[in-house]
Simulated scan of single mutants.
Amino acid sequence: MIYSMTGYGKSVLQLPTKKISIEIKSLNSKNLDLNTRMPSFYREKELELRKIIADRLERGKIDFSLFVEVTGEETSTQINKPVVKQYLKQLQDIVDGDATELLKMAVRFPDALTTDREEIDENEWNAVLKEVQDALNAISQYRLDEGKVLEQDFKNRITNIEALLESVIAIDPERVEAVRDRLRKGVEDLKEKVDENRFEQELVYYIEKYDITEEKVRLKNHLEYFISALNSADSNGKKLGFITQEMGREINTIGSKSNYAPMQQLVVQMKDELEKIKEQLLNVL
């Protein structure tokens, strides 16, 4: 089971005097890159929120937003009446204007409005935390659904590489015979008489040098290990990435040793499938 790092979750809490909206977005990243946006009223709870989000989402570029919309009559901002009256008196001493216009000017001056700093209500905060968990559940489900799509794509491409490897195994005897014929023809073109026993010894050495038996076995094991890791309970994109590196190493070695055009064509197709796997692995948690 794998999870994508791409996801989106949202939850809305309706209170008697306000509506709180929570949104979480995530994209792929090598590590955890968490950005939070919330009203200053909740800033004292930021560290608690960051820990909750980090524990659930683990990795990715994550944007967390908490929006508050006041829907009732409750407000923490009050007019500082003594200060506004003093401003009005000073303005009236300077100009003889309409009282309403002077009032509009007065409330824009410093300290005309005061904001009472209230303690966060614990019941309200617990309700907010529940909505955060709901948003995290939503984004986790989104990541899981995306992961299932990626998982199927990986399995299809691994199947393609396995089929290409079987083709490599099938034409390997043909390749060995082609190498043998090419070497013998090269010697004949030199029009030199050679010791047949010595020639056979050199031929065996040359063919053994380009033998790909070990690479075929190791690549097959890596393909099986990749599927096994893909089906494991945890999602580990980094581990899958390490396995693909080993797969690439064996495919490259087969290509460099093949010395046979039909086999090299199969190797190119295997490399193409592997590169597509590597690209998609960047999105796996």
Results as ranks from 00 to 15, higher is better:
L88T: 03
I20T: 07
K148L: 13
V68I: 15
D181H: 08
D181N: 14
L274K: 08
T213K: 03
M38C: 01
K209S: 12
E23K: 05
V83T: 15
S4N: 11
G248W: 01
A229G: 01
E131Y: 03
R180Q: 10
L103I: 04
G147L: 07
L49C: 05
D96S: 13
Q141H: 09
E208M: 02
E101K: 12
A112W: 06
N28S: 13
T115Q: 14
K191C: 00
E44L: 11
V204G: 00
E124M: 12
V187R: 11
E119D: 14
R37A: 10
R117G: 00
D145L: 06
E44R: 06
Y206W: 08
K18E: 15
N231H: 13
T115R: 14
K19G: 01
P173K: 11
Q264R: 09
L102I: 05
K216L: 01
R218F: 05
K271H: 02
D111S: 10
D153G: 01
L13H: 07
E74L: 07
R50I: 04
N123K: 06
S235A: 14
T244Q: 01
A138Q: 14
A261Q: 12
L27Q: 09
S167V: 00
E73T: 10
V68H: 07
V187Q: 10
Q264L: 04
F199A: 09
K30H: 13
K257S: 06
R117F: 03
N197G: 12
Y205N: 10
A261I: 13
I2Q: 04
E44H: 02
D134A: 14
I94S: 11
N252Q: 09
A135H: 08
I62P: 02
V95W: 11
K10V: 04
L129E: 13
E131R: 09
A233M: 04
E101H: 07
V267A: 02
S11R: 04
Q201I: 09
E192L: 15
S235T: 01
I158E: 02
K61F: 02
Q78S: 12
D121S: 11
E166K: 12
G60C: 06
T253E: 08
A233D: 15
K278E: 04
Y87E: 12
S167H: 11
I62Y: 10
E202P: 00
T114G: 02
T17S: 15
V194F: 15
A135I: 08
R184K: 15
K191H: 13
T159I: 05
L240S: 05
E162H: 04
L183K: 08
M263N: 01
R198D: 03
D98H: 05
E131V: 00
P110F: 10
V83E: 12
F64L: 08
E224A: 12
V107N: 11
L183F: 14
S232M: 06
V84A: 13
T159N: 14
T75Y: 06
M1T: 12
S228E: 15
G7M: 07
E215L: 01
N28T: 07
V132D: 13
T244P: 00
V70S: 13
A127Q: 15
N252I: 00
T6D: 06
S21R: 07
K45Q: 14
E73R: 09
D234Q: 11
K10P: 00
